[in-house]
Structure formats: C-alpha cells, structure tokens
Amino acid sequence: MNARNALALAVPDEDPDADQQEQYLTFRLGDESYALGLLSVKEIIEYGGVTQVPMMPGFVRGVINLRGRVVPVIDLAARLRSESAAVTRRTCIVIVEVENEGEAQDMGIIVDAVSQVVDIPPEAVEPGPSFGAKVRADFIAGMGKLDEGFVIMLDIDRVLSGEDMAAVNDMKAVA
C-alpha cells in the first residue's frame, strides 16, 4: 500500500486541496484511536527488519532500510504513553515526513493497526483536554469527532521533534 502515490494522483503537491487537509489516517494503538494528517504520511509498510541502536531511550526502536535510506523508527506507544507495543501480525510502520528545524526528515512510527482514511472537517474538531488524557497535552492537535467516538489527532511534528526527543535522550542517558 502506498499512500503517497495515491496522494500524488489525487492532488498536485504544490497546491494541496483543502479537502486533502481535512483527511486523516486513523490507526489504533492499544485501546485508543489516533489520527494523523494524511499529508504528512508518505507510506505504510509491514513491520520488520528493524536494526536496534544501542544506548537509545526505549521509544527509539531502531533504524530500517527504506530502499537504501536509513530511517529511524519510533515506538509511538512508548513515546506517547510509555508502554511498549507488542508486535503482532497487524503491526505496521507508518513512514511520515516531519519538519525538524526547517528540514524535512522521514521517520517511521510503529502502530498496532492502520484503520482507515477519514474526513474530519474543522467544525468536527474539539480542543484536546487540558488534563486527564494519557497523552501529553502538547502532542494533541485536537480531538476529532467521528461516528464511532473521538480520535486523538496528533501534532506529529511535535511528537517527533528531534530536539525534544534528544532532550529526553540526554535525561535517560544521565539517569
């Protein structure tokens, strides 16, 4: 499955249609549903071939070879909720493009299962809870209202921001 190709067919890169910006990829992590802006998703691949990198915090699962490029893979469950995801048959790596200090970088995130692509119009987006959610408040871009309930819409740039993660990394290294 190649979401990027599908995207390229649907809409020219330089002028993303407003409709596209309202499209989200939903996926499951444990018992919770999350949504990710479709424009930042490059492709979805089967889980596998992850090379561990030593001395890194738990949420850095390692690196994979993505057609000749070395792409880091983040255990999203560990990053969001400090619980490691068990690998099942449906586990996927979603390759996303994140903006990091002005540089676009590809990263893989591990999810339990990819669900579907949905439209979430702006009026169906509620602000995230200021406390109480298991996920850090600044990682939440909003709560999307769907027929089957709320999905947590992630601010993926923030979640995968290298600076923040490096800071965590240092903390763990010293601790």
Partner: peptide, 18 residues
C-alpha cells in the same frame, strides 16, 4: 550513511551502513 539528528548525542556509533 549518517544516522540523522535523532542520534546526534549517541556516542560510540558514527553512522550506519546497509
């Protein structure tokens, strides 16, 4: 192949190769 910014503070490893 450089490991990227995420691994910039990693010591003992200078990069990766396929």
């Amino acid at each position: 192949r450089p490991l990227g910014k995420l691994f910039s503070s990693l010591r003992g490893v200078s990069g990766s190769t396929i």
